[in-house]
Simulated assay, not measured.
Amino acid sequence: MINILLIASIFGFVLSTLLFLKKTTNTNATFFLGSFYFILSIYALQTYIVDGGNLDKTRWFFIWPLIPYNAICIPIYYYFQAIFKDKIQWKKRQILLFVPLLLSFIDVGYIYLYPDTVYTPILNDAIVNPEDRLEVNYLLLHLDQHVFIRHVWHLGVLLIILPQLLNFLKLGKEDRLKGILNKWLRLFWGVLFIFAISAILYVLEKMGVISIFNNFQHGELVSLTLYLTFLSIGVLPVYFPSILQGYPRVIKVASLSQKERDNEVSELKFGLQEEEITTKLELLNQKKLYLEQDFNLTKCAQEMEMPAHHISYFLKSYYGMSFSSYKNNLRMEDAKKLIEEGYLKNNTIEALAGECGFATRTSFSKTFKNETELSPSQYALDIK
């Protein structure tokens, strides 16, 4: 079973790297999810090294991983916050998240300050008796106390975000992609909760407080619930990339335009970076990709490096139109400009339709008439 830990750690490092490099609209959420898997990968690798009897060959991989381990509740908390709010907001009370991390910095720093008298005996004892390493005393706490505090904080974070999670799950239930995101968040939160409870019970037994898992040795229970489960759910961010994008939020804000100040009107705006999205749309329009016959919402999303449903949501909220209407509106502007410049003097309407991204004259003429209430030939006569 020990080899499962090595497989899980390798998979986790690959997955975290993919998440760090992946371009998404909700970069904060992707970063914190990648950080979580990275910490988990270090955890799995060290467990493989120590419990597998390989610590003597990799002595440098010891003690210091306690620092990232004790930070595991931080990416968990901020990942959910980034999903819920599409942004990260710092509040003073969040400093409590860093208490386990601070304790580990103090204890690890103390051990490395006195390598001969403190570090070497701890290392040698872990090589000889890896199953007893949780009983080692550092400066402030024993290692089992560090583990206990870490997972109590881990459990506390999950309970704190639970009401927010339940409220978030109610939003946009009719949206297919939001439904996928909801399933992922429920699964992810549930696995984290099971692991936190299992880890707390396991370390309490190691501390002699309870006696439940006598038949499991070397942390087999924790290893099984953690690494096998996270190995399986680690596939989801790759198989369903839409869960990395979050969920677009609509925020009601007061408009700053003079017209809206005069009329005291509030406008619904997109919860993502409005300026960034409009800039990307403008760059895309400058390339005139909308004139290509195969230009659709999927291709637009690829060009803008955004999920398709975010683009649709933005166009509906900001411009009040569908993607198809937005695309045809741009095409008609080009068509009118070409007609005004005399394009139809030497070319047919079929040629004009192809120039504007339409496969047939019929679809072009219908769209043009819907836009201008005139056929292309009538519009040309009016211009003349």
Rank of each mutant, 00 (worst) to 15 (best):
A44E: 08
G234V: 01
W184M: 01
E275Q: 12
K288F: 10
I111T: 11
H218L: 15
V136F: 13
S211V: 07
G179E: 08
G12T: 05
P130W: 05
I197G: 03
L45C: 01
K92M: 05
I233N: 05
L40S: 04
L224E: 11
K280N: 15
D334P: 00
F98D: 03
I106G: 10
V14A: 10
L18D: 03
F31K: 10
K57L: 15
W60P: 02
I72L: 14
L221A: 07
G246P: 03
D125P: 00
D125L: 08
I72C: 15
I243E: 11
L6I: 11
T225L: 13
V108H: 09
K22M: 02
N347W: 00
F323H: 12
A335M: 04
I76C: 01
W153H: 06
K91H: 13
A254V: 12
K336R: 06
L18C: 12
F98T: 14
T367R: 06
F61A: 15
F32H: 12
R93V: 15
E267Y: 00
H154G: 14
L33S: 08
L297E: 06
V118W: 05
L201G: 07
G179N: 07
I88C: 04
E276V: 14
R261C: 01
L344V: 12
Y247E: 07
S377E: 13
Y313V: 12
V147W: 00
N329M: 01
N167C: 06
R186L: 14
C356G: 10
Y69G: 02
V265S: 11
L158D: 09
H310Y: 11
M321K: 13
S322R: 10
Y239G: 11
N124I: 04
E282F: 05
P68F: 01
S211G: 01
V250Y: 05
K337V: 03
E174K: 08
Y290E: 12
T372F: 08
S375Q: 10
L102V: 15
E220P: 03
T27C: 12
L169S: 12
I311L: 15
Q94D: 09
E373P: 09
V108P: 04
S312P: 03
F105T: 07
I63Q: 00
R59M: 15
F195Q: 10
E275M: 04
N214F: 00
W189H: 05
A71E: 12
K336C: 07
D262A: 07
L228Y: 14
L185S: 05
A196Q: 06
G354W: 02
L55A: 07
K92P: 09
A82I: 01
G320M: 12
G357C: 08
N329A: 05
I200L: 11
K345A: 10
F62C: 08
Y313K: 08
T278I: 14
L224A: 15
L381Q: 09
F13P: 13
Y37W: 06
K252L: 13
E220V: 08
L221M: 07
A8G: 15
I10N: 01
L166D: 10
K206W: 00
Y326K: 09
K316G: 03
Y48K: 04
I251N: 14
K337Q: 13
S242L: 06
N263S: 15
M321Y: 00
T279G: 02
L158R: 06
L158C: 02
A29P: 09
Y239K: 10
S104K: 08
Q258I: 01
K337F: 04
E174P: 00
